[in-house]
Write a protein that binds this DNA or RNA. Sequence first.
DNA 1: GATGAATGAGGGTTCATTCAT
DNA 2: GATGAATGAACCCTCATTCAT
Lengths: 221, 221, 221, 221
Amino acid sequence: MAATKTLRWERRPDSRPQELLDAALAVFAQRGYRNTRIDDVAEAAGVTKGAVYHYFATKEELLLRAIEHYHDRAFGEIGDVLRDAGGPVSARIRLMMRKAFGATSPSGRMTLALILQGVRHDLPEAHQQWLRGGPIKGWKLLASLIEEGKSVGEFRTDVDSEVAARVVITGLITQMIWQPLALDVPELLVDEDRLIDSTVELLLHGLWPTVVIAAAETFEI
Amino acid sequence: MAATKTLRWERRPDSRPQELLDAALAVFAQRGYRNTRIDDVAEAAGVTKGAVYHYFATKEELLLRAIEHYHDRAFGEIGDVLRDAGGPVSARIRLMMRKAFGATSPSGRMTLALILQGVRHDLPEAHQQWLRGGPIKGWKLLASLIEEGKSVGEFRTDVDSEVAARVVITGLITQMIWQPLALDVPELLVDEDRLIDSTVELLLHGLWPTVVIAAAETFEI
Amino acid sequence: MAATKTLRWERRPDSRPQELLDAALAVFAQRGYRNTRIDDVAEAAGVTKGAVYHYFATKEELLLRAIEHYHDRAFGEIGDVLRDAGGPVSARIRLMMRKAFGATSPSGRMTLALILQGVRHDLPEAHQQWLRGGPIKGWKLLASLIEEGKSVGEFRTDVDSEVAARVVITGLITQMIWQPLALDVPELLVDEDRLIDSTVELLLHGLWPTVVIAAAETFEI
Amino acid sequence: MAATKTLRWERRPDSRPQELLDAALAVFAQRGYRNTRIDDVAEAAGVTKGAVYHYFATKEELLLRAIEHYHDRAFGEIGDVLRDAGGPVSARIRLMMRKAFGATSPSGRMTLALILQGVRHDLPEAHQQWLRGGPIKGWKLLASLIEEGKSVGEFRTDVDSEVAARVVITGLITQMIWQPLALDVPELLVDEDRLIDSTVELLLHGLWPTVVIAAAETFEI
DNA sequence: GATGAATGAGGGTTCATTCAT
DNA sequence: GATGAATGAACCCTCATTCAT
């Protein structure tokens, strides 16, 4: 043990990049890309600045590679899940939403979203790519499910599936992203399962073809 | 010669702060707070850096005062509108949402949202205050309307009004904020009226007490 | 005097750029471009780093502008002098060389040469431009004078005027540039007037059509 | 497996330092000492950074040893050649100059000059040593030959042999050093044999005692 | 009131050098 | 012997802020 103490540093060639990526993601998420110094990432990973530059040419590349590294595991499986699933569209929508936002979802997804939402002005390209590969892809998938529901008669044909999908997806993303702020703004706190399930329930109620019951009709304009 | 000299200050000095605030808001919205230099604001206002510091002690104060300046006109009236309005809750929800997000809404509201969403890590206090005075206030208002609808029998009593309000409000805010990016990511583009109206329509359908019609029931799990 | 002491800095808007250029030239000449920090230049000018960047966007621009600033006064007049001068070509060559390298020549010329000779690998463009506007231009001018001498019968027609001009010009430049090193390498020291005059004398003797006298002929191969 | 492992070091280890020196010289000449990273040298030698430090303690030592290594073969023989040679001084001067600058001269000489001319501010000691062992030694040798010519009556007694030798030697060195730049500045290009021979021819004509012929006398001041 | 010159702390990046493997 | 991971000092450049004019 005394021997290891004299080591100025430990050689961890294989795990190091991984660790740096992890550290970067965590620190970027916490302080924001712009407010994070390379030193912060290095410190979080237990190395010095130079070590970071040994693996990543620039700060931007560090973020980009971190995104890339987590992207597959974060955004990969949703489509797959639905491909295997059958049953009514409602059920698949519920499945998708839980998969996308639920506790079992790759936690990295929201970390990525949190980071990327903040680089709109710093790394426009990365931000736009995230929009395309994340939120937009998400609502397109949901919209297509709704369309399917409409075509099989499960949903009302006069719903605006595109808008419905957009609002639900972005609303949930934003709520999730804001959760860590609940420490300072308690009103933000909401149980995630409740958030997802209540949202899905509301959405489906809005989609199903219904006969508005008498009592309600009274109020209708 | 003395006459021409005075021409250097063409405008009434008392309108200066106002103009600076306008310029600041515009530039902050475009480039983000962090990426905006005081010089940028000054240039946009047609003055020099020093003049900005003449009226505002720090860059932070410049933003804070800009926010403050626009806050009332941006977030003030929604409650008032509803106070005067009567009729079914549905109608008032529609009214509120149009007032909050529609073209006639103070355009500053989304500008503020755009800016403030970006200062989460730079000016946490301002960001939190915005959350409280903007989105949270918004969804609390909507939630209370939904609650009212529930209590008068206009809406289903088993809807999660809190979650419904959260998702709808944050979803719309985010969509609005992302619209300027449609130049680079065309898939983001959506007509704002359609966005609002379709969302309200979906929300109300999700809220109304309904009898799900037979066809749909078939699919229900 | 006590009053001026409290001044953190002096405002010298008009003279400052000039002073910075002067300081830059001096420091670059002394330490070399690459080994000079912006701080060194700033310190030499009695300001801080930031002030330098107030006037010059980059270190490279600082050098480029310094070169530019001194170039005209350094390389401008040689051609003019010759245009006015008449008499035998020999006399004009002597005139040119004294003008180009003599004590009355703009001292900046050799400073520029000293600096630019050192940026071959750092600022290739500037280096090449110097070659074109300095040494090459110099030897082209000298070569044309020699050619004139040949055409009017003043010089031997079989001399290689191009090579003669090249060697004389670059030899003198190099000798001049190395003079400051005489502090450490005394063998380098040479009186500048002697350097120029003896070189011209040798050159002219090499150019004039001659009858080699008997004694010398004996040794000729 | 053990067999293939040994293949990693294909060359005899004792030739390594040699190869590193070669590589160093080549790369330093191309990019300049300061702009060359140890990695560049290592790469050029087909090894890695660590290997370089295995043989040379510092970057400076690498250059110093490279210089040292090439110095003898570069600057050694000129004196020897002259010692063996007889005949008129003119002939020996021609011999010396061809030996020093001609195609048969150790090509390393100009490479060394090119490198060392660039380290004036980085490695003053090495630079000064080069001056002493290269150019200065060169012009001292030439000057002594001229003096010999003067003493045996082969040359004019009123020539400034020191200055003549200085200018010719430094002029030629500089021209040689600038030749690689002819790619970018074509005006620099000159045939090396012509450069040497024409220079020698001019020098000798300047040295020989002559009777300036009538025609030329007309122009003399 | 307004200008813009000057400051100085901060952070990204480079690279010679060290040293565990 | 050789590798390349890790260090850390150095330096360029940015920009919020101050203040002489």
